[in-house]
């Protein structure tokens, strides 16, 4: 009898704690929506396309921040994707096993470095160099995109390599046996086989990049305008939150920041869910 009660108790408490993940995610959406409600009532969906952000006049528009998030992420992806795929090819097909092991571990370790370090490097080392090249103060979407690309590079390279590794050796060996070169094996066997895995990895990295705060806060410049060029100071959703959250002095200001946070959550949720459900499902099933 005693064991039966404890047994049930154990099962139900583990179930409850497992459900807490679902409750948390639900609460996340509900709370952000509630806090954003005044701004949603005041500006509606027009908030998304309004580009004026004037706290002193209680006018808030999210477009500069949304624009900044999107553009800096696109820049980051344009730089990081080819390099990450290059690294993955190098690691899975080219490098001798010991080099692949050493470099592979190094890349996985670099993926663990806190993102704020990338931000500090960007501010003190990259920005001055870019300033000399492009003029201005070296802060802006291009700098932020560049720092982001370096930050997601290890993560992206590691998961792309893992995806490539799922190609059965026998397929590659068959192609080599018919006299294919390495590039032909890659192009006609490996990449078609792991295509959805690679796309999924790239989108997953995109999801990380768009929500990243610390790597870009230092180098964005925090200016609430649509910049004339990508070399001019701008802002993004996480940067706005990080810089202005503790300064919000009116209710509408505070609520507009939550509106931005909600938009960011919806974007990243959609992106990550798409990566997972559309592209990565197959790999997971292959692994299980």
């Amino acid at each position: 009898m005693y064991y039966r009660i404890v047994d049930k108790l154990f099962e139900h408490s583990t179930r409850l704690l497992a459900l807490s993940v679902l409750i948390l995610l639900g609460a996340l959406f509900v709370v952000l929506f509630q806090e954003a409600k005044p701004a949603i009532d005041a500006f509606g969906l027009h908030f998304i396309v309004e580009s004026k952000w004037a706290p002193n006049m209680d006018i808030f528009g999210g477009w500069p921040a949304i624009y900044g998030s999107i553009v800096s992420t696109i820049i980051a992806m344009l730089i990081a994707t080819p390099v990450a795929i290059g690294i993955a090819i190098f690691l899975s097909e080219l490098a001798p096993p010991w080099v692949a092991a050493v470099v592979g571990s190094a890349i996985e370790l670099l993926a663990a470095i806190p993102s704020i370090i990338y931000g500090m490097w960007g501010l003190f080392y990259l920005a001055p160099i870019l300033r000399d090249i492009w003029g201005g103060n070296g802060l802006g979407l291009a700098t932020a995109g560049f720092v982001l690309s370096i930050m997601i590079l290890p993560f992206m390279a590691a998961i792309t390599r893992d995806a490539m590794k799922t190609t059965p050796d026998i397929l590659k060996e068959s192609a080599y046996g018919m006299g294919a070169t390495r590039w032909e094996v890659l192009k006609d066997v490996v990449i078609p086989y792991v295509k959805s895995g690679i796309i999924g990895s790239i989108i997953l990295a995109l999801g990380r990049a768009i929500g990243e705060t610390m790597a870009v806060t230092f180098v964005m410049g925090n200016v609430h305008k649509i910049p004339q060029t990508i070399f001019a100071p701008a802002t993004s959703i996480p940067v706005t939150l990080a810089n202005e959250f503790t300064e919000a002095d009116s209710d509408l200001y505070y609520s507009s920041l939550f509106y931005l946070a909600l938009i960011l959550l919806v974007i990243s949720f959609t992106v990550i869910a798409a990566a997972k459900f559309i592209f990565l499902r197959k790999i997971e099933e292959a692994r299980a």
């Binding site: 929500g211 996480p238 939150l241 960011l264 869910a273």
Partner: peptide, 24 residues
Amino acid sequence: LIRDISDIMMSAPSIVIGAFVYAI
């Protein structure tokens, strides 16, 4: 479902978590 949701939570923007905890 819980596995999928936690995978998504793992990549959720950390600053949004901060804003959430600020509110609650």
